[in-house]
Amino acid sequence: MPIRVKRRYIAVKIDSEATSSSKDFMKALWDSLIKLFGEYGASKTGATLIEYQDEEKTAIIRVFHKEVETVRAALATITKINDKPATAHVIKVSGTLRALKNKLKATKKRST
């Protein structure tokens, strides 16, 4: 029986005055992962961009569930995206994309 790979979906809020593309964001994330954990460590995270919203400055990335903290640490060390000052904060983590979106909706509702 093949082992089912468990994944986690991470919603990220990008805090920056400048606009950046999804490519710039993922480059910043990979750079940060490689600097902290090397290419071997970065390869184990399985980080993939699922969704990126330019206007809201949010992104959803998918990672292997055992590597959530690794990716969280890498996101925390981002200080620049496309050479412009920026930070990335994890807003929510969930096991499915649908649950993550529901959680985000609920948070948004609560804050308005």
Binding site: D15, E69, R72, A73, A76, P85, H89, V90
Partner: peptide
Amino acid sequence: EMLMRRPLEVAALTMLFDMDR
């Protein structure tokens, strides 16, 4: 402000120097 991080992000960074969760 750019150097401020959420508590769970700070906790994740501590794993870099082998603190358990």
